[in-house]
C-alpha cells in the first residue's frame, strides 16, 4: 500500500478576473511508498507547493484523486496522520516554542499529558533545548525552521510532508535535519519533501519525482534513475539528472 497516491491531479489558477486561467498542474501522478523518503523536485514555480497544498486541503484541485494510506482524502480528520512543514515559517511570533507545540498538539487532538511528553522529546530532537521559552519573534530563520519541524512532528504523524526543509539551515543544521529524516524513516514513517538542495536530497532519498511543466516527467528509485542514464558511473549525480531533465 502506498502512503500517498496522487492520480491525475490538475490545478489551474486565475490570477485576475480578467485573465484566463493558467494550468499549473496537468495530470500529476505521484506514488509514495510507505516507509520511504520521497524527494520532490522541480524548478521555481513548477507547482510543488501547489501540489502539497492540494494534499493538505488548503487548495481544492480541479481534478484528480489523492489517497492517503489507501483512503481518499477530503475530510479534515484525514490530516491527523500528516505532519506538515510549510515552505516559509508562518508561525505566531507572539508565542514561544513550547506554546507553539502545545497549540499544534491541541489542534491535533492530543491530550495534555501526551503533548507534554512529545514536546520534551521533540524539542531535543530538533535541537531547540534551552530555547523553549523564547518568543518566536526573536528566533532566527534556522531556528524557526526547527520549530516548524517540531510542530509538524508533535502528533507523531505517519506521513511527514516537508516543503523545502533545508532552506535557511547552516551545514550543521542540514546534517542534523538529514539525520532526523533518516531516524524518522527508521521509525517507519514516510517522508515526502521538496527541495532545491539536491546534494542533501541525494544523500537521503529513496525515490524521486521531477515536476516539469505541470507533469511528473520522471519518477522512480533514485538508484535506478541515476544508473539508467549512466555513461560515466563515477560522477553522475542527481544534479546531472535534474539538469538533463530540464533541458529536454
Amino acid at each position: 500500500m502506498n502512503a500517498l497516491e496522487i492520480k491525475a491531479l490538475s490545478k489551474s489558477f486565475r490570477s485576475n478576473f480578467l485573465y484566463k486561467k493558467t494550468s499549473i498542474l496537468k495530470n500529476v501522478d505521484i506514488n509514495v511508498n510507505k516507509g520511504s523518503i520521497y524527494g520532490f523536485l522541480g524548478l521555481n514555480g513548477a507547482g510543488k507547493t501547489t501540489t502539497i497544498k492540494c494534499i493538505l486541503g488548503l487548495t481544492r484541485p480541479d481534478h484528480g484523486t489523492i489517497r492517503l494510506f489507501g483512503k481518499e482524502t477530503g475530510k479534515a480528520s484525514d490530516r491527523a496522520s500528516i505532519g506538515f512543514l510549510p515552505e516559509s515559517p508562518y508561525y505566531y511570533d507572539y508565542l514561544n516554542a513550547k506554546e507553539t507545540l502545545a497549540l499544534s498538539g491541541k489542534l491535533s487532538s492530543l491530550s495534555n499529558e501526551k503533548i507534554k511528553e512529545r514536546t520534551a522529546k521533540i524539542i531535543s530532537l530538533v535541537g531547540l533545548d534551552g530555547k523553549e521559552d523564547l518568543l518566536l519573534k526573536k528566533f532566527s530563520k534556522g531556528m524557526l525552521q526547527r520549530v516548524g519541524l517540531a510542530q509538524a512532528l508533535i502528533n507523531d504523524p505517519d506521513l511527514i510532508i516537508l516543503d523545502e526543509p533545508f532552506s535557511g539551515l547552516d551545514p550543521i543544521g542540514r546534517k542534523e535535519l538529514r539525520d532526523i529524516i533518516l531516524s524518522l524513516k527508521a521509525e517507519g514513517k514516510t517522508i515526502f519533501f521538496s527541495s532545491h538542495i539536491l546534494q542533501d536530497m541525494e544523500l537521503i532519498v529513496d525515490d524521486i519525482g521531477i515536476l516539469m511543466n505541470g507533469k511528473i516527467t520522471k519518477e522512480g528509485k533514485l538508484k535506478d534513475l541515476v544508473k539508467k542514464t549512466i555513461k560515466h558511473p563515477v560522477d553522475y549525480s542527481l544534479e546531472d539528472l535534474f539538469l538533463k531533465e530540464i533541458k529536454k
Partner: peptide
C-alpha cells in the same frame, strides 16, 4: 496575510 492560517488548517481542523 501572514499565512499562519496554514499552520492551523494543515492540522486536522475544520474550517
Amino acid at each position: 496575510e501572514k499565512k499562519t492560517v496554514y499552520f492551523i488548517l494543515s492540522k486536522p481542523v475544520e474550517r
